[in-house]
Amino acid sequence: MLGIGLIKGLSVTFKNLFTPIFTIQYPDKKVGLLAYSKHINKSIFQILKENPKIFLMGIIGMVTIPVKIDQFPRFRGNEFVWYDDRCTACASCAKYCPLGIIEIVTHPAGENMQAGENYAIDKFDIDTGRCMFCGLCVEACPYDALHMGTDFERGNYSRVNLVLDKETLTSQDKNPSSWFRPQFESNEYNPWEESMSNSKDAGRHEKPSYQKIKEKWVNKRKTDG
């Protein structure tokens, strides 16, 4: 009969009217007074005393609090995490990048050149304005010095600000993503709750010291004859 299919379809939409909302309000959501006082960690009376306008807005549920969406640990984020003391300036990341946006300038500085640790890095620029976050540079890094980040709200008014230089990379918060870093997943590390500022935690293996390398490659051979 004509119209039965329509009524069937409308019953589905009617049923969905009472199912919970699955969309997420982003970047802000409107909340009531209790949730707002919990968010800013102040009691309701303090809000009334300090800002009566927000108190009134809160009564009708119209104050806004920011919402931060948690991604999954492998999320390839907008900033890179780089540990300068792990990096040997081998430039594997720069060679592996499909777009060629990593620029590394080094100069030889130090006495232990053969140990591979004494190239001083003058410049380590990642132009995230052209980056597509494929993560191949992270995959290429043999010493776990470069990691994908987890931040994603990095809007800027100028393209120049999107270039991550050496100073930014060393000074910013280090919340590496577990993309291509299985050691993070086994440790149940959550990048949104804790940061990883110590570079020793970040790697699968530690960078061997000069003494160790000398022991392994020079002294041992001498004894072997």
Binding site: F72, R74, F75, R76, M132, C134, G135, M148
Partner: peptide, 19 residues
């Protein structure tokens, strides 16, 4: 589709451009 894309994010960290 969103559920599938979230599973992809668990797998490889990206929703659309997976690689």
């Amino acid at each position: 589709r969103e559920k599938i894309l979230q599973m992809f994010e668990m797998l490889c960290g990206a929703r659309i451009t997976n690689s």
